[in-house]
Design a binder for these strands. Sequence first.
DNA 1: GAAAAAAGCGTGTACGTTAACAACTAAAAG
DNA 2: CTTTTAGTTGTTAACGTACACGCTTTTTTC
Lengths: 338, 338
Amino acid sequence: MTIREIAQMANVSIGTVDRVLNNRAGVSSATKAKIESIVEQTGFHANAYARNLKLGKKAVIGVMIPLGSSEYGYWNLVLDGIRKAEAEFSGFGLALKYGFYDRDKAGDFTQAFRTLQNEGCTAYLIAPLPVSEFPSAELRESGLPVAFIDSTIPSFTPVAVIAQNPFKGGFVAGRVTRLLSSGTGTFVTIQIHPDAYNSFERARGFRTYIMRDGRNNVVDVNVRSVDDIPHVLDDVFSSHEDIRGIFTVNCIINAAGEYLVHRRIKDKVVAVGYDLVEENRNALKNGSVDAVISQRPAFQGYTAVSALFRKVVQGEAVSPAEIPIDIYFEENLIEGSE
Amino acid sequence: MTIREIAQMANVSIGTVDRVLNNRAGVSSATKAKIESIVEQTGFHANAYARNLKLGKKAVIGVMIPLGSSEYGYWNLVLDGIRKAEAEFSGFGLALKYGFYDRDKAGDFTQAFRTLQNEGCTAYLIAPLPVSEFPSAELRESGLPVAFIDSTIPSFTPVAVIAQNPFKGGFVAGRVTRLLSSGTGTFVTIQIHPDAYNSFERARGFRTYIMRDGRNNVVDVNVRSVDDIPHVLDDVFSSHEDIRGIFTVNCIINAAGEYLVHRRIKDKVVAVGYDLVEENRNALKNGSVDAVISQRPAFQGYTAVSALFRKVVQGEAVSPAEIPIDIYFEENLIEGSE
DNA sequence: GAAAAAAGCGTGTACGTTAACAACTAAAAG
DNA sequence: CTTTTAGTTGTTAACGTACACGCTTTTTTC
């Protein structure tokens, strides 16, 4: 089926059919109804190749990703998904420009973003960043579509947010931790970006589950980097005798697991964390970590790019994607999964 | 970048560039090298819209899906994913033809498949069926690409298999069941298509996990339909006093959970099953089922169609997709997830 | 050394759609 | 009744690629 065939059936020219299909003015209501009924009957769908060839729309998506040292592993997984989408849709008019930054260095995001802005982007995909550095007003005025991955910015409405519900994730982590631990006692949360919305919400979800029957206790601690974990945990263990489990709101659980093994208390303390980076995969295999909550980082990256691409090039509406909460034990690890 | 621009840079015509790009003969090695280096440098990728418009390849995928009563819920989820892919790729030359059958009725598959064969399919997507009805030789001779979803046929090599590892799935189910249950004792597996490879392997995985420390026992039972569950379980409970958990290799766990609630022993017996159909979602919410292993049915359907489509229309190689094993408790249910 | 064959390269058309432009009709204005 | 205007509809040139066809130049053959 082509518009030429539709035109023949309706005894009109392809120009008229085109006007009807694209809702352009200048067609009598009788002709319009006739064409519409033929389209309906035949189930005609415009050839998307011809349409896009003619329209020739291009999308240049500026991707802002934190690749600071402590987050390298996780965001590389996201990047895998982004690159997969890039490979799939280049040739269909998609080009990606990248800006990398360290969200622990003040001004780093801003600088990388300025560079990216000279690349002629028609949309942006933005990962977590220091809230104060986000150029809300500027982006709003530009009118360019912006999608967030794994983050939100108060008072800014993006075209899409690709993220997992962090409270639910922490809640599930609490559930799994209690399943794996024996008896009641004290549970520890470890945060590394305590100001970040995700961190805070995950810890809150965990706390909510653990404390809901009133027989357990939760202690929250912060670390500045992975290296802090041993002495921070030394402190916690010396002031609490009944520690049953440790939950880290991001991927550093393997360091905590290693600590437990080293102190020879792994059999008494459950270790649950976030994000199936390589270190955590290994830690699950050797038993120093018991469970990891995952949020399908590559899937998030792929989904985000694919949603923005369709929005910009194909004008499709973007439906919000809530990312499922995956639970990994040693037994359901799959090579290549996250 | 277009082949016209490449041609200008190389001082040749677009015909010559085209010959190089498509590895056709009739180009001197000097010219070929020149063009290839320009393509390399500029990172040129042929416009996929123009290419596909010209080639005009169409794919008609015949989809064989069991919609027998007992499987209705699960395969409708798969169908959701298939329909999503259909919507996305119609317009890009994809058409789907459907054949529905009941795999418990002998000959039903064969009849539905014969009908489908008159629709001019250029590829087939085939779900589990009675092995004896599979026309191996005929499909092999036709040379048409065939993909399996959730199943395999011995001695037939398809272009793609979209499936979860059933042994690992059962193994994880065992892990979760033991986590949720207290003490040692007897665990029950319930199978409904015991001859099916998936059923058998899931039960084997479950058994392997449960029995690996030698302190537990596993009893395997078969049912012909959901309605059999009450009296089959009556039998099992009357002959075993120490039952700690029930595992169904497919979606009927909600019926077992209901039985346990009705007999007022739900607090003593854990119920774990497969596939997050609507009934199981509700059972998780009301506590009659404790955990469900999922295999992302819609994702499988989408992936299968998308892989076959790319194979047929775009000539891409299909990489095997192992489907992750998802674990759902009440706490990580998400509306719309599976 | 002329004829035949092969190699190398350019030209033009088609794929289905969009949108600018042209053309034609009927109603309104003078 | 002519002119203007608005309302419809038809025509056509792109978009970038693939491939059949034709032309020119070089190489082979007897």
